[in-house]
Amino acid sequence: MPDTYNITLEISRYDPESHLSWVQTYQVEAGGILRFVDVFRKINDEQDPTLAWASSCEHAQCGSCGIMVNGKPLLACELLVREAVDQFNTHTFRIKPITIAPVLRDLVVDLEKAYDRVHAAKPYLMKPAPAPPEGDEYRISPETLETYVEATQCINCFCCATACISSHHHFLGPNAMMSNIVRLMDPRETEKKERMDLLYGESGVYRCHTARACSFVCPKEIDISHFLALGKEGKF
């Protein structure tokens, strides 16, 4: 396995001032264990300081560095150069911003707009059950927690929503819908009716066609389609 790779990045650019879009090609010599965020930084340092991209934690926890590489939505902070070469079997990578929200500049999208979908699903306990009188905490059995704890690891990177066959107009999106279903499964949530209305509403789970691209691309390896199917089955 080589230590360095000569890779070609074809990156979608967008200038909001002129409203011009184009594809810019960068040739980069990159170490195999460099992440794509590191490659972007290298481009900024060595070739083009104007290339805009987003990241924050760079530990796959904040979800702000979501991009599309050769059509696959993923986190730029997780993808190593050598893994990308292996995974896509090429040294040329077409890089685009995720498609779930308007592009602000180059690879940066308006995550506020994307988050509107999550906010619509109210990803919090709307009416928490009162704490048991004998203690100061609400205890959930390990068996119950096991049924939905995986879904709580979602970081709302919107990779699933970008990959979804149907989430761009009607559907709130896999991650937003899953956050609603998780609260339906959470015994601490008592506001079931509003959640059920949301689940089965016009933008709800029936817009999901079980294409399972959400589960395929999820950087946290959450089987999102499993939870959406539980929503359709109506048993929590």
């Binding site: 599309m68 050769n70 059509g71 696959k72 995974q87 896509f88 990959a163 066959i165 066609h209 079980t210 294409a211 399972r212 691209a213 589960s215 395929f216 691309v217 389609s225």
Partner: peptide
């Protein structure tokens, strides 16, 4: 070759 590695086979089956 584009969609199988980027969206998975279930996505292609859905199409």
């Amino acid at each position: 070759s584009y969609y199988a590695p980027s969206r998975g086979w279930s996505f292609l089956i859905s199409w």
